[in-house]
Amino acid sequence: MYKWRKLKDRIFFAVILILSIIAITPVIHLIVVTLANGLSVIIRAGPSFFTSIPPAPTSKDVGGIAPSLVGSLMLTALALPITIVIALFSSIMVNEFPRNPLSIAVDVVAKSLASIPTIAVSMVVYLLVVVPMGTFSTLAGVVALTIVSLPYAYTYFSTYLRSIPETYREAAYSIAMSRWKTVTRVFLPIIRRGVLVTVLMTMARILGETAALLFTVGRYRIGVSTSILGPTDALPLLIFDYILTPYRNFQEIAWGAAALLLIAYLIIFIATKLAVRGVKL
């Protein structure tokens, strides 16, 4: 009896192991291929990969990705805090006043925004921001990225907030904490890990977003731009454009940028795993 149970245990374990290997093989393959192709480019180009502009199509130079890198950093630095603040406040409002018409509206809007294709967001922002301003801009990109990532961050925050047992609200109220203090001193600390994970995941989402930027930032690659009202570029756009060209040095640049983006993703992923210890309930 005991032996049979042990055998079953082993078989079960073996099946799980094989299935897991099947599941992660494509991911590992993707990581290895991207790093192998990209890192060799970065190494060959040296530090100038990060500081120079892309090469001319047929030149022997490897060139660099500085405009897109700076653009991506700026877009993320602006869009991430805006997204997080709005998403956090609205998820708190909906959690605290679920029957308030405004909360119901926010919830519905957030859920429907999540299902709009990001390329459509890009078109709408093109009409509402780019056309009136007469130019592509970092600002338009930030608006598009915020719209795209808001429902994402909002959904995460709401899920974490809803997971807090009601009994902690009661405990807080019973010692005469106000609603606001209950949120800031009880709820947010309890879900602190979730908040940090959400920030990191949203950051990853913003860094990798491509379609939302298609008609908004303008692919400015002839120099590094730090202007908020002028055009800029982003890593995913650069990859998207250059990998489709017939030029070998463009494709190399794309691989290098992809490797960089992938490394950023891996760092973010590891950070979410290491992120502050969760609260044991």
Binding site: A172, S174, S178, I190, V279
Partner: peptide, 19 residues
């Protein structure tokens, strides 16, 4: 919120703040 300043409560199932 004002009323509760004067009233302590211990609940049926213990709910100390976990954090």
């Amino acid at each position: 919120y004002e009323l509760r300043r004067y009233i302590g409560m211990v609940f049926q199932t213990p709910n100390p703040f976990p954090h």
